[in-house]
Amino acid sequence: MDVKQQVLAFFGSKGGIPGATEEDRLKCEYLDTRVIDSMGIVAMVLEFEATFGIRFSPAEMQSMEFRTVGGLISLIERMRKEQARG
């Protein structure tokens, strides 16, 4: 599975992402729409870091990108590319 599929599968396992279209689902702010709660953030971060071999920096977690499903996918994809470049 690619990053997008794995991230969507993660949120799917939490009850699914609200939205009629994929575009809506990618725009979803997963915390504000209660797909996961504040306590679930730690598990989410740890799971994505372990799955993708990345480490979110404080600045990355403070970005607007981090707050949406689509933003998170883009961020992880970019982090993996940067990591691959060394």
Partner: peptide, 11 residues
């Protein structure tokens, strides 16, 4: 809570 969860990954 924000510091522990996001910066230190702690409960």
């Amino acid at each position: 809570g924000q510091h522990l969860m996001l910066m230190r990954r702690l409960s």
